[in-house]
Simulated assay, not measured.
Amino acid sequence: MTVFVMKWIGITGIILNTLYASVTGAALVIGLIFFWIGFGNQTHKRRPSHQPIWDKIQMMVTGTMAVVFMLFLLSSWNANLLVKQIFPGMVGGLIAPFILTDQLPAAAAVHIFWTLVSLYWLLPYVFDFKGISWKWQTIALGACGCSTAYGLLLMNS
């Protein structure tokens, strides 16, 4: 029964982390495109009195995209570790699960720490970004929770 529950927690973690990585990757690409379009022509047109405002906006956009890039990296890393752990014969050698047993809890801990810090402190307060709905927050925290739960169950087995 516990092996069955562990597999389903892991598969749910794979699905949620893949969804999380794809959404953050798409947001990063869209953000880069709008950043290049929006600020490409502004460098020649700005007046010296408005330069500090544009510098602050560019710094906020760059910081937001850096946070999203870290979320993308961590969620794709956790999805990769979960896939290699749950399906070892398909994506790696047979020794991979034994090596990844130590890496997965650490990766999940880093992932949940960075997600909590970025969703509830960096994005809303530091970068003044209030566009994250509860649905995406639930998916992000669910992905972190499934990775952490699978890593802890893996350590105990």
Rank of each mutant, 00 (worst) to 15 (best):
D128S: 09
F113P: 07
I9E: 00
T12K: 01
G93A: 00
V3I: 13
T115Y: 01
L28I: 12
F69Q: 02
S147Y: 00
W134N: 12
T24N: 15
S147A: 14
L94R: 15
F4E: 15
I132N: 10
L153Q: 00
F129V: 13
V83Y: 06
R47C: 11
A106Q: 05
F72R: 02
L16E: 11
T62F: 03
P52I: 06
L19N: 06
T115E: 00
G63H: 04
A143C: 09
V29C: 00
A149P: 00
A79L: 06
P48C: 04
T138K: 03
F87T: 07
H44D: 12
V67Q: 01
F39E: 04
Y120S: 05
Q103H: 06
T24E: 04
T64L: 07
K45C: 05
A96M: 07
V68T: 04
A21Q: 05
F87H: 09
M65I: 10
L81F: 02
W77F: 10
V126L: 13
H50A: 15
A26E: 05
I30F: 15
G142N: 09
L73D: 10
W8H: 15
V110S: 09
N41V: 05
V110R: 06
I33E: 02
Y150E: 01
D55T: 05
F34K: 14
L32I: 11
G40Q: 08
T2Y: 11
P105T: 01
L94K: 14
M1G: 12
M155P: 00
F113V: 12
M1D: 12
A149H: 01
W121Q: 04
G93K: 11
P97H: 05
Q51S: 10
V68W: 09
S76L: 15
T64K: 08
W134R: 07
T2F: 11
G131W: 06
G142F: 01
L100M: 05
F98E: 06
A143T: 01
D55Q: 08
P97V: 01
I15H: 04
S49W: 07
G31T: 03
L71Y: 02
H111K: 05
T62W: 00
A26I: 15
G10R: 04
F87V: 14
L71I: 12
F98M: 10
M155R: 07
A140G: 14
T115H: 03
W134E: 02
I37T: 11
F39L: 09
S157D: 06
K7E: 11
W8N: 13
Y125S: 10
P88S: 08
